[in-house]
Every structure is written in C-alpha cells, then in structure tokens.
Nucleic acid binder design. Structure first.
Lengths: 195, 195
DNA sequence: CGTTTCCAATGAACTGGATCAGGAAATTAG
DNA sequence: CTAATTTCCTGATCCAGTTCATTGGAAACG
C-alpha cells in the first residue's frame, strides 16, 4: 500500500476528503509493474484504464501513414496517462502507450471511475478539475505549436520541464516537440557551444 | 427567453434535469448581442465568462511577437467559446475573442458556474463532460497538427466542418489550420481545378 | 566477453510552406 | 450609386526544417 500514498496525496491536494473516502478512492485502483519497452495501450484495443504513474516514465505516441512516431504525451511520477480519446469514448485506441523505464502504475478502470463519479459529488469534482486542467494544458500546447518555431519550442520545454528533458530519450522529445531528432540535436549543440 | 431554448436543449441532451433545474441553470446566463468585429475578450483582461453561441460566429486568436494571428478556436451556433486558460485560472487573457458576424450569446459568470457546480452534482457532471470532450477534441487537434501536412489538414477540416469553411473568412481558417492565407488559397484552387 | 542493437551527432542536398509584391474581387460605408 | 477598405488570388524567391547517409559510443544481451 505504500505505493498508494502518492496518489492519496495527489487527490487530497485537489479536493477535501475524509479518510474513508480516500480509502474508497484508492480501493478502485490496481497496482501494476511494467517493464521498460512494455506497452500498456496499443492501437486497436480499447483503453480501459486511466493510469497514475507512481514510479517511472511513459510516452503516448501515434504512428502516421509514413511510419513516423509522434509523441502526444509524456508522463513521469505523479502524472496520469492514457489514450484519452479511446478511454473517454471507449473506442479502439490509436496510440501506443509505452514504458520508457521500468515503472509502477496505479490503474483505474473506466467503469470504476464512472461509479466513483456517480456515487460522490466530491469525486465528480476531482475528475472535472483534472479534465479542465488537461484541457487548458493542451490548449497551451496548441498555441505554442502554432506560434513558436522549433528552437523556441525546445527552449520553452527545457525551461518548463528540465527534469523530463534529462530523462527521456531524444527521439521521444523531438517527436513531442514536432521536429526530427537530427534537428533537435543541432539545436542542442548550437546552444551549448555558445555558453 | 426564446434564445434560451437552444441552451436548454443543449444541456438536456447531456444530463437529465427537472424543469426547475433547467430554469435554475438558465437563470445564471445573461443574453448579449454583439456586433461583427466586436471583442468579447481581450488580452490583459480576465475572461470572466464562458459564452454559449445562440446565433453568429466567433473566433479566438492570439497574436505572436511578429504580429501574426493564430486562431485557436472558432465557434458557431450551439458551441461555447472563451479564453479557457484565462477563465479557468482567472488570470489575464492572452487571446482576443472576436465576433465574425453580428451575434447573440448567453454568458455565464465564473462565480455562477462555480456555484452551480457546487450546488448540484448534476451540473458538476455537465461541466465535467464538457471539459472532458474539449480535452479530447484538443488532443485530436494536436495529433492532426503533428501528423498531417497543410493540405491534409485542410481536407480533413473541410470534411469535418463544411459549414464553418463556408462561413468564416479565409484568413481565420488559414490561421486555424496553421498556414498562411496565400498557401490556403493555393490549396483550394489546386483542388477545384481538378474537378 | 564480444556482439548486436539502439541512440546521438553531423554533413550535404532538398522541399513544403513562408514571404514579398502586385492586382483583382468582393464587401462595406457613405 | 461610387469610393474605400477588406478579402482573395497568383507569381517569384527564399529559408527553416527534413531527408538521407555515415559515424561513433553506449546500453542490452547471450
């Protein structure tokens, strides 16, 4: 149960709950260990779970017609990850969600989440806050992608998520930022040479 | 009150409500008439309202350092619009939200929305569904922007929102799709000449 | 331990889409 | 109605970022 502590803190930061409620919430989650390079979601299969990262790192990506990856989301400790279009509408996924390291996650099933939301106004509020913030975050990303060039996108990301830059492979970062690995490599070396 | 009918239908499609609840919901909204080219949100001012479009069309856009616009959202009848990062966190807006036609909207104030959500589990659910779907929609847009080229993005939009393509000026569409008006013009003429 | 597979760095040639510049249509205002 | 302004079209040129190819180093693996 020590792994659930982080999740308990996570939710208590966002809504007020009694100990009983916290336990009810946690009881809906199942602990899973995932090895590096393992997939927790694959295209064609419905994403039945929302995943809270206790330890490790994941990336969600799509593969386009020309065979290239595009990283849609990266998650490390205390973040959530899934293919939300698949999860929300319970339709087949279009994404891969892959562990970038050996990891531990807490999974909640779609039906259990639905039940929690229906049963307690509190939990409905929690998931509403989560959705609102994800929405706002994604909108900021859309804006960045539309308004900034490759170098600016990289710099912005470096400032905002220095930990993630250190931790994930360059190809994952490049495809998240919407550029090739080659170009990202050039940008990085441009910068470090100057200083 | 005839203008509220559309909004009443909108919400009843998403959650089950008694007539009294519908009225309580509607009573939080104020009707506003907006003339073409008028702004309902401007950078530097906090977006106090979420806006439901009863009639007309709007676009939300940011202006980058080089002075170019980037359309973040377009809304016609039965859609919502605001600067969600400003609204959600009650921080100064970065966007303009401008009427593209003479329009009619129903506005809800941030505090009234908060009150509705707190008061009734039902309304919390409604706003949660709204946020979830917006999030999923934005994620699909991120994917499209990362995986498709200009022509494919245009074609996809044309198929999905033919009505909007007809209705909004080309510069608004081009800047939504992440290309210049010149390039969009070329794409359009490429296609129509063939057929 | 060597071998294989993965990942970052860099060079050279290329291209999708931007920029700049000039008009032609179409709206809008008066 | 005409004038002014806004929107759209088209051609010529340019560049940020891609593509393709090669190399070296570092994990992963038997």
């Amino acid at each position: 149960m020590t792994e659930s502590l982080a999740l308990a803190e996570h939710i208590k930061k966002r809504i007020n709950l009694t100990d009983a409620e916290v336990n009810e919430f946690l009881s809906c989650f199942k602990l899973m260990k995932v090895r590096k390079r393992q997939f927790i979601i694959q295209p064609g299969f419905i994403a039945h779970h929302k995943n809270y990262v206790v330890k490790g790192a994941f990336r969600a990506y799509v593969v386009d017609d020309t065979g290239q990856d595009h990283t849609i989301q990266v998650s490390i400790e205390d973040w959530w990850i899934s293919d939300y279009n698949s999860y929300l509408y319970q339709k087949p996924a279009t994404m891969f969600v892959e562990a970038l390291e050996d990891s531990i996650i807490l999974q909640i099933h779609y039906n259990d989440e639905a039940w929690l939301k229906q049963e307690h106004h509190n939990f409905e509020t929690f998931f509403r806050i989560m959705a609102e913030r994800s929405m706002a975050h994604m909108q900021r990303r859309i804006i960045t992608n539309l308004t900034k060039n490759a170098e600016e996108r990289y710099k912005e990301f470096e400032v905002q998520y220095p930990e993630i830059v250190q931790r994930i492979p360059q190809y994952a970062l490049a495809s998240y930022l919407g550029m090739t690995t080659e170009y990202l490599s050039r940008l990085r070396n441009r910068r470090t040479k100057k200083s």
